[in-house]
Amino acid sequence: MRVVLVDAGGTNIGSVRYALQRLGTDAELTSDAARIRAATHVILPGVGAAAPGMRRLREAGLVDVLRGLTQPVLGVCLGMQLLCERSEEGDTECLGVVPATVRRFDDMPGLRVPHMGWNGLSREREHPLTTGLDEGDTAYFVHSYMVPSGDYTLASSDHGVLFSAMVASGNFMGMQFHPERSAGVGARLLRNFLSL
């Protein structure tokens, strides 16, 4: 197994790497196309806004590289949103490997945005990535934009609206929450990804 973390300047790269180390996996941090293509598992972390996130991928020449991957790919937080077609955040064209448009949480009375904290995960369909996920399990979220529910939704969460907490479209998968900061549940889900 050779796991790489795509280095596109996200600030949570260190945390994701440490989480993998706690699982006994030393992931290489790289923006090199050949090394990414040669990996068995690719993780696209990301924190921040969609437009600068995509700009960094373009500048690193990684847009087509990522689109063309056939091994398991996991986007985390912003990384998951970048897998979608578009994001309303800065009206940004994204990688387009998950058929969804990223939207902002609607303004609703009493609804806090950013959605920040531990929220429940409800399994929406069977998938190896959600193995062992139990009713009542929670994960740590921090985000203002979300992927609406759709056929690609593996697990959903509720914050004024049901949205995608986990997605999968072919070999491309995503976790909106931070598995690296979601205690035992996060470790379990990362282990599921590594065992794909």
Partner: peptide
């Protein structure tokens, strides 16, 4: 900060 980040799995 880095030592904490390596050890803990909560934010």
């Amino acid at each position: 900060v880095e030592r904490v980040a390596r050890e803990i799995d909560i934010p």
